[in-house]
Simulated assay, not measured.
Amino acid sequence: MTSEYRHTPVLLAECLEQLELKTQHTFLDCTLGFAGHSFEAAKRLGPEGLLLGIDQDEVALAAAAERLASIPEGERPAVELLRGNFGDMDELLVAARVPGVDAILFDLGVSSVQIDTASRGFSFKENGPLDMRMDPGTQTLTAAEIVNTYNAADLTRIIRGFSDEKWASRIADFIVRAREQAPIESSEALVDVIKAAIPASARRAGGHPAKRTFQALRIEVNSELTVLRRGLDAAVRWLNPGGRLAVISYHSLEDRIVKDTFASLANRCTCPPDLPVCMCGREPVLDIITRKPVLPSPEEVARNPRARSAKLRVARKR
């Protein structure tokens, strides 16, 4: 396996502890990648368990299959890898004839593989085409199309709404002006426009000036927040009673969706708060296991800086 597809799983020990995997369990990794989490999970499932993995990237699926196959046959669970988006979980699991799942993991955001591959266009540090599609084989909308065709108001909405960028309006205006001279087609060209838009005094703090804008474009290209809501709803439906759902998020928008979804399903009563007895009959679906998110240790962040913003939330189905 090339170093390009090596990936350090975030909060690995914490995920395994919280998922409470046992032999004969069915485990679903909704963001399989290079099977960083699944490789260790498989060892806990044993030969009578079932490991399911979902990923949009054919190369990642092949890499994961190779890695999982390295587990000795007598210790390895049955493995079924599904190509697709976890937002389409219902269709994928129906096609796989899965009756139910005992533990589900989402590790959100962009994988190290995608970030480090310049041709995918996710990185603001490496020059490449403005693409940012998680699944180039089926998706048509690219970051280049957004940057070169959306009007200033829509660009402002996306950049501010998906990244809380203070200079969103100014960045949008600079993009519109720059593309009048020539299309903005590379990550390097977009970074230059963003740097020009943000005053020098503001660029000296808060990390790379293009980080927030690139995050916002990636979310828009892949409809990430809509897909996340759909995936979480499906995951709860597929969990067996007592099954656990673990989600690692990397920015506040994702974490808020996870937190709100868990809270709404843990307290489904819609009766007025002053009503002494519940009349709606809506029973809770989940128990929240982590009242506060689990964070990576300083040691993990030192080993893997990309873990710095990770937050793990866990719930159990009733």
Rank of each mutant, 00 (worst) to 15 (best):
A65S: 11
R203E: 07
P276V: 00
P47S: 11
A189R: 03
P183K: 01
L105V: 02
F34L: 07
K22I: 07
D287M: 12
A202L: 11
R256D: 10
D192Q: 11
C280K: 09
E299W: 15
I198H: 09
T26A: 12
T117P: 08
E48A: 13
A210C: 00
V191C: 06
S119V: 08
L92G: 03
V147M: 07
L93P: 04
K317I: 05
E283K: 15
L245V: 08
I194M: 01
R120K: 00
A144S: 06
F27W: 10
T149K: 15
A172K: 05
D116C: 11
Q139R: 10
D255F: 11
S119C: 03
T23V: 07
P183S: 00
L68T: 03
G231L: 05
E66S: 07
A263V: 12
G243D: 10
K292Y: 12
L82Q: 10
G33C: 12
V258D: 03
L312R: 01
Q56F: 15
S201A: 14
E75Y: 15
R212D: 01
R318Y: 13
V10M: 03
V314M: 04
N148G: 10
A235K: 06
R179C: 05
Y250K: 01
A315H: 07
M132W: 07
L50S: 06
I104E: 06
R157S: 13
T117A: 13
K43H: 02
L275G: 00
G242N: 06
D116E: 14
C15Q: 01
I158L: 11
M279I: 01
V10I: 07
L155Y: 03
P209A: 05
L217M: 13
L28R: 01
R218I: 15
Y150F: 14
I184K: 00
A95S: 02
V227W: 08
M1I: 10
G207S: 02
V301A: 02
P272K: 06
T140V: 02
D88M: 04
A65K: 04
V79F: 12
Y150Q: 08
T226A: 11
V258L: 14
A235E: 10
A153T: 11
A103Y: 10
A65Y: 01
A235Q: 08
S297N: 03
T142I: 06
E20F: 14
P47F: 05
K292N: 11
A216G: 08
I248Y: 05
V101F: 14
Q215C: 05
A266T: 12
T213R: 03
R83A: 09
K317W: 06
S201D: 11
K292I: 04
K211E: 03
R318M: 14
Q56W: 15
R282T: 06
P276N: 00
V236R: 07
P129F: 09
F106W: 04
G36V: 00
Y250R: 01
L11E: 03
V101D: 08
I115K: 02
L108F: 13
N151D: 15
T213S: 08
M279A: 06
A205F: 15
V176Y: 12
E180Q: 15
V94D: 07
G53D: 09
F262Y: 12
F162A: 02
L28H: 02
P284Y: 11
G74Y: 12
P136K: 03
E300N: 00
A189M: 09
R44C: 12
L275R: 02
A315D: 02
A196W: 09
A200L: 12
A62G: 12
E299K: 13
I219Q: 02
R306C: 02
A60R: 07
